[in-house]
Design a protein around this nucleic acid. Structure first.
Length: 426
RNA sequence: GGAGAGGUGGCCGAGUUGGUUGAAGGCGCUCGACUCGAAAUCGAGUAGGCAAGUGAGAGCUUGCCUCGUGGGUUCGAAUCCCACCCUCUCCGCCA
């Protein structure tokens, strides 16, 4: 949610900013119109209420003095009728205003490159040299099935397409990656580990911006609960409605969770393999930062995520998303893209964003500064990193001609010293 | 799921014969005094949201709303009534 008073005073700037992110301008105009009505009504109602409150006080005083309050009561009666009518109107219009406001996206930070789509994202840096193969590198689904660790058929049987079963050393590798990432971020980068619920209520989904706009992307359960699409949702909302201490900022959390996404609208995309699943594991980095230093915190968060790929020896690049490719709630986003030999290109494995106070407003997360003033914090998060895609990247980047896969050095202590995955059928 | 207790400001905690109580007191925090400095002590200040006015601005002034949430009763509710949510204790069930 944007700072509405500020929006009202900077309409033109907001209009232009929304344009750069391909957001239609009509919504803004609608909200502005509703807001005009809302404020007019509130002024009117407030004045009437002030009058009525004063008269009510007089009734008390009147009775104390032993006088007859009847004339006052008649006057109050008349005002009360008007108030009730206007108050109902005001409430309705406030509801409409708030609901519309929830659909207005965040504005891009001024450092975000302007562009219409993905193609105009800007590469910031590269790390690692894609390996030169003396054979044609195979896709991970072939490697994984041959190793007997990836089972797509049974995933589809017990659930549906886009679900995968990991067997034996594949399951172990998944678990090893999670532990490796958690240990790295807690021990080397100073994050506090959290294990949050995988189901959250509607209010929580609204807090981080998934609802009401992206209802179709989520799985919904009974009892006002929804499956989380990312740890960002429960963990950011951990501090919803709270006032944090300025000296505690930034708070840095790392959480492993499973993530659930319906992937509605991505039919036909990445249908094979592990790239796009309805359920996947992710280790997520989150920060609650002081507004003055949130962009420095974003840079350090990106570096923390990059370290995972560097230690695993996976070549990647960092991309700054352009205004047109920015997510609904983000003010600025860097994607980490890992090299996939079978596709001969980089694919997203992490997305790191500063949401500024957009989520903090929705979830009401604030801090008290030394001067006693209360202000919204900035929230940030980024994958550190997506586990399934990391596993797939390892299979592809570390594959050998004979079908074996070398386990990256840093993972071996998490895998009982295992150095090589070998096809069981050999 | 059943029975009981409870949800008040950053925190703790008063406040149920409805009426200057948006809220005593304490802690914490801020400023000031004392001090070379600090501690202790003393004094002052200290909820949030919305709207309007004023100011270049930090801010200041006024009004409205908020004592879990939403309704209701009443001229007037933290205080009375109803529904829901949450916490705690006991019982049941359960990994």
């Amino acid at each position: 949610m944007l700072d509405w008073k500020w929006v009202r005073e900077n309409k033109d700037f907001v209009r232009r900013a929304l344009e750069t992110r391909n957001s239609s301008p009509e919504l803004l105009e609608e909200i502005l119109a509703v807001d005009e009505k809302r404020r007019g009504l509130q002024r009117e109602v407030d004045e009437l209420k002030a009058k009525k409150n004063q008269l009510s006080k007089n009734v008390g005083a009147c009775k104390k003095e032993g006088k007859d309050p009847a004339p006052l009561l008649r006057e109050i009666e008349g005002i009360a009728v008007t108030i009730e009518k206007l108050d109902r109107e005001l409430k309705e219009i406030e509801k409409i205003w708030e609901e519309k406001l929830l659909f207005l996206p965040n504005l891009p930070h001024h450092t975000v490159p302007v562009g219409r789509s993905e193609e105009e994202n800007v590469e910031v840096r590269r790390w690692g040299e894609p390996r030169r193969f003396d054979f044609s590198p195979r896709p991970h689904w072939e490697i994984g099935e041959e190793l007997g660790i990836l089972d797509f058929e049974r995933g589809a049987k017990v659930a549906s397409s886009r679900f995968t079963v990991l067997w034996g050393q594949g399951a172990l590798l998944e678990r090893a990656l999670i532990n490796f990432m958690l240990d790295l971020h807690t021990e080397q980068h100073g994050y506090k580990e959290v294990f949050p619920p995988f189901l959250v209520n509607t209010k929580t989904m609204i807090g981080t911006g998934q609802l009401p706009k992206f209802y179709e992307d989520l799985y919904h359960c009974q009892d006002d609960l929804h499956l989380i699409p990312t740890a960002e949702v429960p963990v950011t909302n951990l501090h919803a409605g709270e006032i944090l201490e300025e000296e505690d900022l930034p708070l840095s959390y790392v959480a492993y969770t499973a993530c659930f996404r319906r992937e509605a609208g991505s039919y036909g995309k990445d249908v094979r393999g592990l790239i796009r699943q309805h359920q996947f594991n992710k280790v997520e980095l989150l920060k609650f930062a002081h507004p003055e230093s949130s962009y420095e915190e974003l840079e350090s968060l990106v570096h923390d995520a990059e370290m995972v790929l560097q230690l695993l020896g996976l070549p990647y690049r960092v991309v700054a998303l352009c205004t047109g490719d920015l997510g609904f709630a983000a003010a600025k986003t860097y994607d980490l893209e890992v090299w996939l030999p079978s596709q001969g290109r980089y694919r997203e494995i992490s997305s790191c964003s500063n949401f500024e106070d957009f989520q903090a407003r929705r979830a009401n997360i604030r801090f008290r500064s030394a001067s006693g003033k209360v202000a919204y914090v900035h929230t940030l998060n980024g994958s550190g990193v997506a586990v399934g895609r990391t596993l797939l990247a390892i299979l592809e980047n570390y594959q050998e001609k004979d079908g074996t896969v070398v386990i990256p050095e840093v993972l071996r202590r998490y895998m009982h010293g295992l150095e090589l995955l070998i096809p069981s059928v050999r």
